[in-house]
Write a protein that binds this DNA or RNA. Sequence first.
RNA 1: GCCGCCGUAGCUCAGUCCGGUAGAGCAGCGGGCUUUUAACCCGAAGCGCGCAGGUUCGAAUCCUGCCGGCGGCACCA
Length: 485
Amino acid sequence: MSDQPNDLLAARRAKLERIRAQGVDPFPHDFPGVTAVAEVQEPWQALEAGEERDDAYRIAGRLSARRGQGKMAFLDIVDRSGRMQVQARADVLGEDAMAQLVDFDLGDLVGIDGTIFASRSGELTLKVTGFTLLAKSLRPPPDKHHGLQDVETRYRRRELDLIANEEARELFAMRAKVVSTLRRALDDDGFIEVETPVLQPLYGGALARPFVTHHNSLDRDLYLRIATELYLKRCIVGGLERVYELGKDFRNEGLSTKHNPEFTMVEWYEAYADYGNAMDRVEEIVISIAAAISYDGPYDFSAPWPRVPLAQAIKDETGIDITANADRESLVAAIAASDKVSLDVEDRPWPSLVDDLLSKYVEPKVTNPIFITDYPVELSPFAKSHRSEEGLVERFEAFCGGMEFANAFSELNDPDEQRRRFDDQVRLAEEGDDESQPYDELFVQALEQGMPPTAGVGLGIDRLVMMMSGRDSIREVVLFPAMRD
RNA sequence: GCCGCCGUAGCUCAGUCCGGUAGAGCAGCGGGCUUUUAACCCGAAGCGCGCAGGUUCGAAUCCUGCCGGCGGCACCA
């Protein structure tokens, strides 16, 4: 996209000056009384080709196409709800006004007053009785037929993508519906939405490397949050009982089709519930979202989703029994003996090997939604020990379409156990693990105050939207994804 | 960070293998046309091919490096 003036820009500038010279304001302040084109069209679906009515409407939008014909022309106006054709006639408008309207550039924002009719070929059309330039466009729009295809331009100049591609507008409207449906579901069930710090003295709640920033007058470094987990649990300690926060988390990791450095996450915490209740709620909410957007895709969201223990899932896909091979040496031997699995086991501790088996052999196989449950304690520093399975915690992750989209557990509320888990994390940090958790004394003290048994869930909104929309890259569902300079 | 593919007019693309000095449609400009649907017809114009080097009589085409994008690997949600 060139910033240098060229003929196309000069032509538009010249028109702008011509318009001003005619005494027309190319950037007026308002245009009251507009009806969305979908609303204009809705009552007239049955109008027969050639039928005309006196019903008058005012619409506004971007001029997207023009089919001129001398003393008569058809123009297409696009607003958020759709596209509508209007007909300009010299015998209605007069020669001068007709010339003015036809001289508008594709991309200009225009307001149209007109009466409804169905054209000879049956398309609902407004016969223009009046028009107003609402904002002059000084740059050419993308191709009217092919839209904007260039992926890089679509991400860097999302406004052009939204102008040119109806699917882009629909996608982000759909994303908004996903979020509003989720909020309503939680609100209706007695959750209160809270806001906790994005800038944190100490980061925590997930295993990830943070962004660091600096506060000048406090003269101290702060971290951008990697999760809302710890603050939200302090809200539960405080007696808020059901809380959620929906917002951005930031993780200083590599980019991929599934990872943007800032991403939208909802976390909710429910007192007196466990991870089983959390599975019910995830299932219910996702199903209600699918219904709200009239989901029409390859996945079957209907309940109940399978709930498969991690050890079982790994055994099903690889034949390897991690329960029977509960130490590193025997698991390495089992992997070596397997003809289904090839993993780099060098320097990998037992929990990492289990994680690898999950992410390489189970996760990619998932199509319809499934809960994988009961993880090794080493992978989950904030999850409560399993009530019956030694060495495991009550945790689940939800997967769909080869991708994890939710992570949840019965929250650890024993402060002494939490201290030991932090100690383990600090030890990992000393061994060079830069994703381990810093010790959060304030959080442990909050647990010492007493936290009810609680279920907590984190659900990735971007990934949920990917699933619901069939997009295979997170950049497609984030308006302005991270790009290099 | 590594590997592969890609980068040509405002937009969508052809041309790259087999070097010969860049082309189409849309948009824009001038003209014609009272029911078009990617409207149509006529005319004139627009890019030196991501950037920088190199090879060559000659490079969009071959080579090297860099920048950016996409995909994969690694890491992670």
